[in-house]
Amino acid sequence: MATLEIKDLHVSVNTEDGAKEILKGVDLTIKAGETHAIMGPNGSGKSTLSYAIAGHPKYEITSGSVLLDGEDVLEMTVDERARAGLFLAMQYPVEVPGVSMSNFLRTAATAVRGEAPKLRHWVKEVKEAMSDLDIDPAFAERSVNEGFSGGEKKRHEILQLGLLKPKIAILDETDSGLDVDALRVVSEGVNRYKGSSEVGVMLITHYTRILKYISPDFVHVFAAGRIAESGGPELADKLEAEGYVKYIGKQEAASIG
């Protein structure tokens, strides 16, 4: 049973004006099978948390620890973290011209699984996974994310989630920029994977609307670089009604309209 333990995590980012501390002591434990929603206003450091865990070179860990089943994640390279079972569905997936989606998926699956998947099974597996997410098979031959719409990119992130089968999945604003249909398809994809595995999910979002599709076990309010309040699903309802005013001293809605 996988456990991700984040203890007193402090993270800085280098800017033109020198290092700026974004995360100011984050404590969070995510166990297998649990879904934690991280909700917070813009600029509170939610994305920094996800990138820091995944190992983006722009972010510097100044203190604290991140352990996956007791192993020190911060000592691992980016790819080692992924192979250890961490997955980050990115808010802004990167375009890689000239590398086909099918080549990319197979290369990634080979790396994460430790051996090349048998071609016949693999083709079938990818085909089904794409169909489940309403992805046109023609995308397999297109370059990774190149020219994809926002919704298409997010579907492909969730496609990778299903194929790479991580122990811990971090979904960074996967709902942003999605219309109602796309949000439903993407959420169903996440739920399908949750249903088929014991994955622990960190669901980062600004808005409560994705929580209508993916039910969290825990809700954490993120403000000013740390967790300001934790609770159950009822905390999301409260945010829906009151917004983030209590945490940041000004009004910022957590619901749309």
């Binding site: 980016v78 790819d79 992924a82 990167v94 290369t107 990634a108 790396a111 994460v112 990774v144």
Partner: peptide, 18 residues
Amino acid sequence: QLFYLQARGIPEEQARRL
């Protein structure tokens, strides 16, 4: 690009070649 590919488990050297 390198980060994205590595975040999917692909080792750095292989990611560069891709």
